[in-house]
Design a protein around this nucleic acid. Structure first.
Length: 404
DNA sequence: AGGAGGATGACTAAACAG
DNA sequence: CTGTTTAGTCATCCTCCT
C-alpha cells in the first residue's frame, strides 16, 4: 500500500533531503535543487515574492507534492519558523489549487502574512489525485491521520472494478475528481470502439480509451464498459459520510464534490488542534461549500462550539445544515455572502462568542483552474478575487482579537 | 442534462551548444 | 562530458450553449 510513496521517497527525495525540508535557513528558503526552481511559481520577472526582501529564492512547487510531511512516512518533518505577524490567534488555514497561473501563489502568500504554502497531492492519502496548496499557521509536528486509513488504489476502493479492468490499463489511482463528469456519449464511444475489436484492442484504440479514462476518472464496470464515479463514490474517496450530498440534483452534487476539500488531507493538517482544544473550538468557515472543514474537525473528534459558516450556494448550505443537525450539538450560524461580513458584524460576533480559534476556507478556484477555458483570469477574476475577502476577514479577526 | 470546447504549467527525455 | 534548450506528454476544484 505504501509502496508508491516509498518508491518516490527513496528515488527522489532522499538524495539531498530536499522535499519537505526548508528548515536549514532562517528565511524559510528551500535547500537544494536550484536548477529546478527557476521554472516554478513566482520565478517570472517582475514578480516579487514575499521573501524577496530577505532572499531571491522564488517559491518552489515541490515534486512530488508531499507537503511538510505525510502520514506514516519517514519523510523528515520540517521545522519551520513563522513570521511573527503570522502567529495566532487565530489559527488560519487557506486552500486553493496548486497549479495556478504564475504569480498567484506568491500573491496569496503575501496577503496571508508571508507563510509559504504547503503543496500536497492527495493521491498520497487517497485513491484520487488532488493537487492543492495550503497556507496555514498550524504546528506541523505530531500530526496524525484519520483512521482507518482510506484506500490508496482504485482496486482497494472499488473491488468490483477489478473483474473488468483490462491488463493494458495501468492506472492504480484516479486523477482529480472534477466538477463535471463525462457524458454518456463518451462511454458509448469507448464501448463501441472496444466491442468491435477481436481480442486485445490495437495500440491506437488503447491510447484513445486510456486518455479518455484518465481525463474523466472513468472506471471499468463491465465488459468493455467504463463509467464515471457516482456521487456516493466520490463522497467516499473525498472522506465524506455516505449520502452527504444526497437530496440535491446530480449536477449540483458533482459540482459541490468537485469543489470540495479532501477531508483526510485537511484533517491530517488539522489533527494538531485536537489536543489544543479539548473543550472544543469556535470556527469561522469561509467558502464552506459542503462543509469539508467541518467534517474534518468532526472526524478528528474536535467539538465545534460555534461555527460561523459563509457560503453563497443555497444547496451547499442545505447540505451542511442537514449534516450539522444530524451530527452536531453546537451552534451553526449561516451567512450567504462574504461581502456582507463587515468588520462591525465580525466584532459583534467575536464579542458574543469570545473569539475564533480557527479561520478556515478555500476561496473560489474557477479563475485559477486549468480546466477553465473561458475565464482563467487569475486572482483578479470575477470569482477568484473573493480571495481578498478571505484576507480582509482574517486581518479583521486578527486585529479584533489582538485587542481582546 | 448533454455536448462542445483549448490554454497553461509541470515534467521528461531528447537534442543541442559549449 | 556537462549544462542548457527544446519539444513532446500529461493533467487540470471548468464554462457556454442548446
Amino acid at each position: 500500500m505504501s509502496v508508491l510513496v516509498d518508491l518516490i521517497y527513496t528515488s527522489e527525495a532522499s538524495e539531498d533531503g530536499y522535499y519537505g525540508n526548508f528548515s536549514d535557513h532562517e528565511d524559510n528558503s528551500y535547500g537544494g535543487r536550484k536548477e529546478k526552481r527557476k521554472r516554478f511559481e513566482g520565478a517570472e520577472e517582475g514578480s516579487r515574492g514575499p521573501l524577496d526582501s530577505r532572499s531571491d529564492e522564488p517559491m518552489p512547487l515541490p515534486n512530488p507534492m508531499v507537503g511538510f510531511n505525510l502520514p506514516n512516512q519517514k519523510l523528515r518533518s520540517v521545522d519551520r519558523c513563522l513570521p511573527s505577524k503570522a502567529i495566532g490567534p487565530p489559527f488560519y488555514y487557506y486552500e486553493n489549487v496548486a497549479i495556478a497561473p504564475k504569480g498567484v501563489w506568491t500573491m496569496i502568500s503575501r496577503f496571508l502574512y508571508d507563510i509559504q504554502p504547503e503543496f500536497v497531492d492527495s493521491r498520497f492519502l487517497c485513491a484520487a489525485a488532488r493537487k492543492r496548496g495550503y497556507i496555514h499557521n498550524l504546528p506541523i509536528k505530531n500530526r496524525s491521520p484519520l483512521l482507518p486509513l482510506p484506500p490508496k488504489t482504485i482496486f482497494e476502493a472499488f473491488h468490483r472494478t477489478k473483474k473488468w479492468w483490462p491488463t493494458w490499463d495501468p492506472r492504480k489511482q484516479l486523477n482529480c475528481l472534477l466538477t463535471n463528469v463525462a457524458k454518456p456519449k463518451l462511454m458509448e464511444q469507448i464501448h463501441h470502439a472496444l466491442a468491435k475489436c477481436e481480442g486485445p484492442p490495437p495500440r491506437r484504440v488503447q491510447k484513445y480509451v486510456l486518455e479518455t479514462c484518465r481525463e474523466g476518472s472513468l472506471v471499468w464496470v463491465g465488459l468493455n464498459k467504463v463509467a464515471h464515479l457516482e456521487p456516493n463514490e466520490m463522497e467516499y474517496l473525498l472522506g465524506f459520510p455516505k449520502d452527504h450530498t444526497r437530496g440535491i440534483s446530480m449536477t449540483d452534487r458533482y459540482k459541490s464534490l468537485g469543489n470540495s476539500f479532501h477531508v483526510d488531507t485537511v484533517a491530517y493538517h488539522l489533527s494538531v488542534l485536537r489536543d489544543m482544544f479539548p473543550h472544543g473550538m469556535n470556527v469561522l468557515s469561509l467558502f464552506s461549500g459542503i462543509g469539508g472543514a467541518e467534517v474534518a474537525l468532526h472526524r478528528l473528534g474536535i467539538r465545534m462550539k460555534t461555527v460561523v459558516s459563509v457560503e453563497i450556494s443555497e444547496v451547499n448550505r442545505f447540505v451542511l445544515r442537514s449534516w450539522w443537525d444530524q451530527t452536531q450539538t453546537g451552534t451553526l450560524i449561516e451567512i450567504a455572502d462574504v461581502q456582507s461580513l463587515t468588520s462591525e458584524r465580525l466584532e459583534s460576533c467575536i464579542k458574543r462568542i469570545g473569539g475564533f480559534d480557527l479561520v478556515i476556507g478555500g476561496s473560489p478556484c474557477n479563475n485559477l483552474a486549468g480546466r477553465n477555458r473561458f475565464h482563467r483570469d487569475g486572482l483578479d477574476g470575477e470569482h477568484s478575487s473573493l480571495f481578498y475577502h478571505y484576507a480582509r476577514i482574517l486581518d479583521t479577526v486578527k486585529s479584533i482579537m489582538d485587542r481582546m
